[in-house]
Structures are given as structure tokens and as C-alpha cells.
Simulated scan of single mutants.
Amino acid sequence: MYYPEPISKLIDSFTKLPGIGPKTAVRLAFFVLEMEEDDVLDFAKSLVNAKRELTHCSTCGHITDQDPCSICQDESRDQTLICVVQDPKDVIAMEKMREFGGKYHVLHGAISPMDGIGPEDINVESLINRLKDEGIEELILATNPNIEGEATAMYISRLVKPSGIRMTRIAHGLPVGGDLEYADEVTLSKALEGRREL
């Protein structure tokens, strides 16, 4: 279908976003055309500012507009506890919970040989350096409960074990409010494995 070049480019830009197919991209592009010009300029400015002003914390790897990030600077947090996550979005999810009082380390991915991603392609080396320097007593491995996340957790576990630092893995299993009949075998297996005393 023919579109004038400016809208065609806008549609192409939207299709580069994850989860946006061609139909949704067309809908979004035409929505933008209907917006007030000031709103469009604010939207474009927000995109550019996010890209220009955000960086990764040199300590933990989380996204930040200051280095080190506010979490790494916070002296009231437990300095002996690090939670290892795959992405900055995971830090945000953990912080929303308001239960975790330690620090984080963001890997920016997971080991996935099928995708050509090895340990050297994620933020593992700086984690090992932090463990040597920061007096860490416990490492919580909170990678995703899939093949890549499990492989990454196992790899880090093998690297860290000789140091004697306590390592734990977040529990996996049935979600609160979930039904047994709808759970797959892996989820049920993990739920049984992670059972605890009442």
C-alpha cells in the first residue's frame, strides 16, 4: 500500500519496536498525525532525551541519569547483599515491591549459545570484580526461570562457589492465585522443588 514518504518512515520506525506489528504501526502513525503539534514535539523530545541523558551505572549496570546510580549511592541499603538480574526492568520490578534492601547487579542479558551469547557478552566480569572488592556475603540469583536464565545462574554459581559467598536462587513455581490444572510440568516441578515448611 502506498503512503507518503514521511508517514511511511514513521510506520517503519514503529515496526522496529518490540511487539509492534505492521497493523499496529500504521495505527500508531496515524494517531501521531492526529496529535497536537506540541504533543508530538514533547514526545519526540522525550525519546531523544531518554537516549542522550541515560547511561548505565558503572557499578551495577542499571540505567541512570547519574553515575553511580541512586541505589548504589544509598548508604542505608544492605552493602553485603547483591541481587543479580538480567535487565534494568527487573531492578524496577524488584524496587516496586519495596521488600529488597540490598544492591543490584544487571547482566544485560543471559547466556544463550543458540543466539551466540556467551558469558563474555554479558556483565559477568564486573560482578566478579565487585565480589572481590565489596565485602559481599550473599548473592541472590534472580535471572529469569527459562533455559537461558537457568544456564546463566548455573554459570555464575560455578564461578562464585569457590569464594565461599552464600548464593541463593529466587523461588519459582505457581503464581499466587494460579490453578494447578493450568500449570505446565516445569512450573509444577519447580513449585514442588521450592516447597517449604508451614
Rank of each mutant, 00 (worst) to 15 (best):
I71M: 03
I71C: 02
D74T: 03
R77Y: 01
T80N: 11
L81V: 04
C83D: 05
D87C: 03
D87T: 10
K89A: 14
D90V: 00
D90I: 04
V91F: 12
I92V: 14
A93V: 12
M94Y: 11
M94I: 15
E95A: 07
E95P: 11
K96L: 13
M97E: 14
M97Q: 15
M97G: 13
E99S: 13
E99H: 13
E99K: 15
G102F: 08
K103Q: 09
Y104M: 08
Y104P: 06
Y104N: 09
H105V: 10
V106I: 11
V106F: 11
V106P: 11
G109I: 03
G109F: 13
A110D: 01
S112N: 15
S112H: 03
S112L: 02
D115H: 11
D115G: 01
D115T: 02
D115W: 00
D115Y: 06
I117M: 08
E120I: 07
I122Y: 12
N123K: 14
N123P: 08
V124N: 11
E125L: 13
S126K: 14
L127A: 07
I128S: 02
N129Q: 15
D133M: 12
E134W: 00
E134I: 00
G135W: 04
E138T: 02
L139D: 03
L141R: 06
P145T: 09
N146T: 14
I147S: 12
G149A: 09
G149P: 05
G149D: 03
G149W: 06
G149V: 01
E150K: 10
A151S: 15
A151N: 09
M154E: 13
I156Q: 08
S157T: 12
L159D: 03
L159F: 06
K161D: 09
K161P: 04
P162Q: 09
G164M: 07
G164A: 04
G164S: 00
G164I: 01
I165P: 01
R166C: 07
T168L: 12
T168Q: 09
T168K: 07
T168R: 10
R169E: 01
R169S: 05
R169L: 10
I170L: 15
I170W: 11
A171S: 14
A171E: 02
A171N: 03
H172E: 05
V176K: 10
G178N: 05
